[in-house]
Structure formats: C-alpha cells, structure tokens
C-alpha cells in the first residue's frame, strides 16, 4: 500500500502537472510567436501574418505542420548523433526551466530551495545546444556562429548572476516563491501607502539592475539586437544553417521558450509575480495567474519592441557592453545593496 501511495501516486501527480504545464506553455508560445511577428509588422507599418484563421491567429499552427511534414535533411559530412542531439538539448533544457517557475501562489511543480540557481544553471547549460549544433554541422558558418554564441552567452551570464544576487540579497532566499512573497512589503508600506503595491516590488529600488537584467536577457537568449549568432548578413543563419524541418523547429521552439522563461523571471524577480499591482478590491479579485501572465506578456512586449526598433549590435560592442559596462555596474550595485541592507537592517 505504501509503495502505491508513497511512490507511484506522487509520480503520477507530478507527471500530470508537467504535461498540463507543458501543453499550456506550448500553446502560449505559439501565440507569442505570432505576437512577436505582429508587433514587428506593426512597427514597420505592415500587416504581418493575416491569412491563416481570423487575423492570422493560427499561423503558428500552420508553421508547425509545415515544419513537421517536411523532410529532415542531415548533411552527409555531419556528426549525425550530435547533429540531432543539439536541437533536442536546446528544447528540453528550455522547457525544463519551467518546472520551478511559480505561475501563481503555490502553483509550482517543484518548489525547491534553490529555484533561482536552478534557472541560472539551466540557462547556462542551454549554450550547449548551439555549440553542439554548430560543431556537428561540419560547416564554417555554423561553427563561427557557435563560437560567437558561446562567448556571448557565457559573458552575459556573469551580469545576470550578479543581478540575481542583488535580488537575493533583498529577498534573503533562493526560493522563487519566497522571493515573490518578500515583495509584499517594501517602499509602499514604508511611505504608508500599502495599497500601492506596485511600488513594493523590486523594480523600483533595483531599477538599474532591472534594466541590466532586461538587456542581458536579450543577449542570453540571442534575441535581436544581440542575435549575432544568427546574423544573416554575416553568417547566413548561424548555427542553424544546416538544419531544416523538425530539428530547426525545435531550435526555434527552444529559443522562444527561453525568452518566455526570461520574461517570467523578470515578472517574478522584479514585478511581484502573481501579486496585483494595486491592492484594492477589483484588482485583488483577479486570480494570481492572470497577473503573472500579464506581467510576463508585458515584458515580452518590450522584448518584441526591442527587436523591432533597435539595430543589431556589432560583436565587439556587445562584448564591451557585457564586460566593461554591465559587469562593473552590477558589481558596484551588489556592494551598494549589501551595504545599504547591512546599515539599515532592512535585509531579511
């Protein structure tokens, strides 16, 4: 009896939760892909995808069908095992990060003590998809792109790590739910207006770090203006040159899920996760997952706008920004935050 209730039942529950999260996440990603293209089109005064379904709403599903039904081509000179493993690694790792993301109070599959570190570890692993894909293709543009991608992601992980440290210092915990809960009180309660709960969140006291995190998240996920790994004017399509059909789709899916993870991280670490922006009646009735989704989607809107509006960086400028601007800035801010917390005793 205990075998069933202690081992089998929890496994079934976790599997069911994971499948539910996965399906919902993939549906959200399908529409986020469309939103990305629509926003991009709107900035350029185009219509964007508008043929499949009403307002082009089913465009992503049509694309999915197209990718899956095409023949996958594996170059004869490639390392075949690694060539197919690379997109799998990218997608699996990107999806894996969502296991610790609390989408509402208590709505999380694995509420582990070191959730933030888990996401950091997963995002540092995701560079392997690009490196393996670039190397296994046995072609010069993918290889150059893999090198670029690796250097870029390793560089920006440093500043992301330091930004997360400032948040951890304020929250006093590595558990993501605890970090969100620590934003229940803050500046607004300090100035005596507790109903203005959006002032409680970390985006205001840590505003420079929020900006650094946003820009680093763009670089970490190879989003424009930092999409140098797939700069089409120099490297054709980067490490994805030799990929087609389903493997290519998995790369793209992994990339978009990673972007969603970063948006969710910004919503959780800096914008109070599932908490309503104003703590009065009509807002507090709305369930937490709606607020979380709205915040994450707002962040995605900014990400999409950055793609539409900012021209691509040059590679040396990218490295300079990461190592000479963001690293010192975030280091100084870590020392500053630690000092302020120690002197005032605000820290947990």
């Amino acid at each position: 009896m205990s075998f069933w209730s202690d081992i089998v039942w929890p496994v079934v529950v976790i599997a069911a939760q994971s499948v539910l999260l996965l399906v919902l996440l993939l549906i959200v990603v399908a529409f986020i892909l469309l939103a990305d293209r629509k926003i991009w089109a709107a900035v350029q005064i185009r219509r964007g995808p508008n043929v499949v379904g009403p307002f082009g709403l089913f465009q992503s599903f049509a694309d999915l069908l197209k990718f899956v039904l095409k023949e996958p081509v594996i170059p004869s000179g490639s390392a075949k095992g690694l060539f197919l493993l690379a997109p799998l690694v990218t997608t699996t790792l990107a999806l894996l990060a969502w296991v610790v993301v609390p989408v509402a109070d208590g709505w999380v599959i694995a509420d582990i003590n070191v959730g933030v570190l888990f996401i950091l570890a997963i995002s540092s692993l995701s560079v392997y998809g690009a490196i393996m894909g670039g190397w296994a293709s046995n072609s010069k543009y993918p290889f150059l792109s893999a090198l670029r991608c690796a250097a870029q992601m390793v560089s920006y992980e440093v500043s992301i790590g330091l930004v997360i440290i400032t948040v951890l210092l304020c929250a006093g915990s590595l558990n993501i739910s605890a970090i969100v809960r620590s934003q229940e009180t803050g500046l607004a309660t300090m100035i005596g207006l507790p109903w203005l709960s959006f002032l409680n969140w970390y985006w205001l006291p840590l505003l420079p770090m929020f900006v650094v995190f946003f820009v680093s998240a763009l670089a970490e996920t190879n989003r424009p203006p930092f999409d140098l790994a797939e700069a089409e004017s120099e490297l054709v399509a980067g490490y994805m040159v030799e990929y087609g059909s389903t493997p290519y789709m998995m790369f793209m899916l992994g990339e978009y899920v990673a972007i969603c993870t970063m948006c969710a991280m910004m919503a959780l670490l800096f914008m109070g996760g599932w908490m309503p922006p104003i703590n009065v009646a009509p807002f507090t009735w709305v369930p937490g997952i709606v607020w979380f989704l709205l915040k994450a989607l707002l962040m995605f809107f900014f990400v999409a706008m950055a793609k539409a509006m900012v021209p691509r960086y040059r590679y040396d400028q990218l490295m300079r920004l990461g190592w000479k601007v963001f690293l010192p800035l975030s280091l100084i801010y870590v020392v500053l935050v630690a000092g302020v917390l120690q002197l005032t005793g605000w820290g947990a």
């Binding site: 582990i112 003590n113 070191v114 570190l117 888990f118 950091l120 570890a121 540092s124 692993l125 560079v127 392997y128 490196i131 190397w135 290889f143 893999a146 090198l147 690796a150 390793v154 992980e157 790590g161 590595l174």
Partner: peptide, 26 residues
C-alpha cells in the same frame, strides 16, 4: 547538497567545460 549541485553545473558545466570545448574544437 542542492546548492553545491547547482553550483557545480553553473560553474563547471556552464563556464569551464564551455572553454574546454572551445579549445578542443579549435
């Protein structure tokens, strides 16, 4: 030791092994 476990991944897999791979591929 979940902290050490994730630190091992962040530091060794995420950074050191990437540099190894870099050098070996070049």
């Amino acid at each position: 030791a979940e902290f050490l476990a994730l630190l091992l991944i962040v530091v060794y897999v995420g950074a050191v092994a990437v540099l190894f791979l870099f050098v070996v591929m070049m």
